[in-house]
Structure formats: structure tokens, C-alpha cells
């Protein structure tokens, strides 16, 4: 019995680690979709760019220098990539979601193909930085040290993003734009610049998540669509354009993917989308989707 409890506590802990990573991945997607109505299907590709960067830089051997270098480079690429995506979707702002989704899907496909050409077809692994590559004993069982650290890093990033959005003027502007884009324009704020800023920061978080997720997920062809679907599920469950929603959605999905699969192994393929269906039936706008968040 104690063994059973300990094993499930490890699943809970693991759900936190996965949830932390999912939050970093999904919050940018949520804000960009909620604010500017741009469904950025290239978000998964940005994650994979980060993962491949980490694989490439740590390919010669794991070191802190390589790992932090990958984080820094991924952040810069994320900023530039996000800004570029924002500019690319700008001419389509008055068009339907579908047009923007098709454009970003096209970008995602091109990026994925280029990554495959540059880095090859074989799946690549990303070693955790020295000191974090071992295991720590938790509840009497070995648990990867890196994942413990990941929980902490995710928490720090979540607090950082929350402070930025809830406690700064830029954040107030972001929230205002989520709620009523036209009104923001009416008080004389150029919301294209707000959009570029949020797009760039959200994309930065996606590429950084790719590096952080490297030691867990590796880098491989097809990973982009898998993580994109996870991020979309997080956004749908949490509600659009809400930091709190993205955080809760990510933690819920983390637990479903971890504890849910551990408790219901026979329904492993079903629990994720079962939970999604349940949320959509009970709260069609997601757990934290406001009435105004998804309008216009």
C-alpha cells in the first residue's frame, strides 16, 4: 500500500514537472491567440527549433556552457521569429482565423522540413547539464534530478510571466488588448506594437521551452505537431488569453498525462482527450476563459 502511494506521489511530482514545461510552452500561444486572434500553428515548430538547438550545441558533450548558450541563442531566435510571425500575419488581421492558421501552418511545415534537412532524420538526444544528469531518490525511488530542477525553473518563469502581465503597465496593456482590441486603438495605442511584443515574448518562451524540454523529450521529426497539440489542449482547457488559465491548464494536463495514465493505464490514450471533452462540455470557454476574452 505504501508502495502504491509512493509510486503515485512520484507521478504527481512528475506531473508538476511536465506541467511546468507545458506552461512555458503554452502561455505564449494563449496570449497571442487571446489577444490578436492569431492561431499560431508554428508554435510547435518554435519549440522544436529550441530542442534541435539544444541537441546541436550539446552534441559535443554536455556542459553548462553549451546548455546556457542554447538557452540564450534560443531566446534570441524566439524573439526574432515571433516578431517575424507577427509581421507576417499582420496583413491577414481582418481575415478569418483559417487564413492565419494556414499561413502559420505553412511556416511550421517549412521550418520542420528545414530542421530535418539541417539536422538529419535521426532522433537526437539532449543531455542534461552536468550535475543534473543523475537521479535523486524521491519516496524511495530514483527520480531524474533534471526534472526536479525543471519544476523550479517552471515556477520561476510562471511567477515572472504573471508579474509581467499582472503588475506592469505593459501587462495591463496586454490584458486590455485581450479584452477589447478596438478600445485600445481608440485610446491611441498602436496595438500592432503590442502584438509584436507579445508575439516575440511568447515565441521566446516557446523556444526556451524547447531547450528546457530537450533533456526530457529530445529532438525529433514530428515532435512539433505533438507538442503543438498538447499546447492547444492546454489553451482550450485553460481558456484563451489568460496567464492563470495557461498555468492551471498546464498543471491539469501535466497531472492527466502523468497521474491519469498511472492510475488508468488501460485508458492511457483516452484520458487526455477525455478530460478535454469534459471541460468543453462543462465550461465551453475553458476554465478561465472570460466572456470577453474570446470575442471579436
Amino acid at each position: 500500500m505504501t508502495g502504491w502511494v509512493a509510486a503515485n506521489l512520484i507521478s504527481v511530482l512528475n506531473g508538476l514537472a511536465i506541467g511546468a514545461l507545458l506552461f512555458v510552452l503554452a502561455v505564449g500561444l494563449s496570449l497571442v491567440f487571446g489577444m490578436m486572434d492569431v492561431l499560431n500553428l508554428a508554435h510547435g515548430a518554435l519549440f522544436v527549433v529550441g530542442a534541435y538547438l539544444a541537441a546541436a550545441l550539446t552534441g559535443g558533450g554536455a556542459s553548462w556552457g553549451a546548455f546556457l548558450g542554447a538557452l540564450g541563442l534560443a531566446a534570441v531566435i524566439g524573439l526574432l521569429g515571433g516578431g517575424l510571425l507577427s509581421v507576417m500575419t499582420e496583413p491577414l488581421r481582418r481575415r478569418s482565423h483559417l487564413d492565419q492558421a494556414l499561413l502559420t501552418l505553412g511556416v511550421a511545415l517549412i521550418v520542420a522540413e528545414l530542421l530535418q534537412i539541417v539536422f538529419g532524420d535521426d532522433p537526437l538526444a539532449v543531455p542534461a547539464p552536468p550535475g543534473l544528469d543523475g537521479s535523486t531518490s524521491v519516496f524511495g525511488a530514483a527520480y531524474p534530478t533534471y526534472r526536479l530542477v525543471l519544476i523550479g525553473v517552471g515556477a520561476v518563469l510562471a511567477v515572472g510571466v504573471w508579474l509581467l502581465v499582472e503588475r506592469t503597465t505593459l501587462g495591463a496593456l496586454v490584458r486590455a488588448t485581450v479584452a477589447d482590441r478596438d478600445m485600445v486603438a481608440a485610446i491611441g495605442v498602436d496595438n500592432r506594437r503590442v502584438k509584436i511584443t507579445v508575439f516575440a515574448l511568447g515565441s521566446l518562451l516557446a523556444t526556451v521551452a524547447g531547450v528546457l524540454g530537450g533533456p526530457v523529450y529530445g529532438a525529433s521529426v514530428g515532435l512539433d505537431s505533438t507538442v503543438l497539440i498538447l499546447a492547444l489542449v492546454v489553451v482550450v482547457i485553460g481558456g484563451l488569453g489568460s496567464v492563470r488559465g495557461a498555468l492551471v491548464g498546464a498543471l491539469v494536463i501535466g497531472q492527466i498525462e502523468s497521474l491519469g495514465r498511472a492510475l488508468l493505464p488501460d485508458l492511457a490514450s483516452f484520458v487526455l482527450f477525455g478530460a478535454l471533452a469534459l471541460v468543453l462540455i462543462v465550461r465551453p470557454r475553458g476554465l478561465f476563459g472570460g466572456r470577453s476574452g474570446a470575442t471579436a
Binding site: 508502495g3 502504491w4 509510486a7 503515485n8 512520484i10 507521478s11 512528475n14 511536465i18 532522433p123 525511488a141 526530457v216 523529450y217 529530445g218 525529433s220 521529426v221 514530428g222 515532435l223 505533438t226 507538442v227 497539440i229 498538447l230 498525462e257 502523468s258 497521474l259 491519469g260 495514465r261 498511472a262 493505464p265 492511457a268 490514450s269 487526455l272
Partner: peptide, 28 residues
């Protein structure tokens, strides 16, 4: 195709008390 994290299954293996594991996976 959608499993990124095998922790729940590894947990199950540990609890089963098995002396060995036989598996089939390919690619990533």
C-alpha cells in the same frame, strides 16, 4: 506517437515486481 513521457508506465513496471522488461519501440 503521442507519448512523450513514460514515467507512468515506468512506475507501473516498478510496482509489478517484474525481474525483466521486454519492449518494442522505434525511432524517437
Amino acid at each position: 506517437g503521442t507519448t512523450q513521457d513514460y514515467q507512468p508506465f515506468l512506475s507501473q513496471i516498478r510496482q509489478s515486481g517484474a525481474g525483466a522488461v521486454f519492449c518494442f519501440f522505434a525511432g524517437a
